[in-house]
């Protein structure tokens, strides 16, 4: 660790607003990119599974 204390680390030698806002935005963009495919995949299987179940019910009724 190059900083002597946690508050030193958070202060970033006076550049805190710049460093932390850049990293914050970066974190959000990366998180959205990492999480969105999984969410889309789950939604696909939910919708298609529902359709599959309905088709099965219909087949039973007939």
């Amino acid at each position: 660790m190059i900083f002597s204390s946690l508050s030193d680390f958070l202060a970033m030698g006076g550049h805190a607003p710049y460093v932390w806002s850049a990293y914050g935005i970066g974190l959000v963009v990366i998180l959205v990119n990492v999480l969105s495919p999984g969410i889309a995949r789950r939604r696909f299987f939910e919708i298609e599974g529902e359709r599959e179940r309905r088709a099965a019910v219909r087949a039973e009724q007939e």
Binding site: F9, G13, H15
Partner: peptide, 17 residues
Amino acid sequence: GLAFAPPDYQQGNSFRI
């Protein structure tokens, strides 16, 4: 990069971006 790399002698800590 945020915590262990040395600060830039010209730009200080903003270079960590």
